[in-house]
Design a protein around this nucleic acid. Sequence first.
DNA 1: TTTCAGGTACGAATCTCGTCGTACCTGCAG
DNA 2: CTGCAGGTACGACGAGATTCGTACCTGAAA
Lengths: 103, 103
Amino acid sequence: MSAPPEDDAADLGTVFRALADEHRRTVIAELAADGSDGERTCNSFDLPVSKQTQTHHFRVLREAGLIHEINYGNRKGIRLRRAEINRRLPGLLDLLTAERRGT
Amino acid sequence: MSAPPEDDAADLGTVFRALADEHRRTVIAELAADGSDGERTCNSFDLPVSKQTQTHHFRVLREAGLIHEINYGNRKGIRLRRAEINRRLPGLLDLLTAERRGT
DNA sequence: TTTCAGGTACGAATCTCGTCGTACCTGCAG
DNA sequence: CTGCAGGTACGACGAGATTCGTACCTGAAA
């Protein structure tokens, strides 16, 4: 209810709901696996959905406090909020990277 | 698709979807916070929903591999599958108990 | 045996979510 | 300026989730 803060990390329900979707989980797992934490474009994830749907997924991830979106007007940059996640939800990123390696 | 295994821990998507609901998260958080790991009854959680809905929630938790249900015909016992969870999803229970203590 | 609380099965109402179509905006390359 | 790729806004549709009503089963107490 009311406008989401989207500025800081949301509650566990919002985070789990965001990570329940396989596409969004793939995005965060890829970001978490890349230690350089560089800025990536939305297209670099090769999601098998339309661009409207991608916009939706990245918005959900941003409102859950998991990523940072940098708007360049024309294109958009994605960055993992690793520090905030590890501070408020320690161990979460490890769960995602572990799943990605099998089992 | 097909009948769910419900015997061993499910994938991350199923687990996150199960824990996205606040009622179910409350159940697991209470179980995780109680170190004795004793058997509890469904009623002991005081969920503000009807008993049909409780049946539904406990089934979701069981199919996600998070709890064990012991059927006595008349009543039902609930037990946290702590060992399996900590083995396949280390750190998950800590996230739930941390949220319950406030941020 | 009768009664009753605890649970389940099935179905319906409602809501949310994931997806896309159409239309529009933004910045860069010709 | 024109064209074009990347993104967004709004609306719609189908699938799934949450909740409950009604009906029924099970075991223990009276």
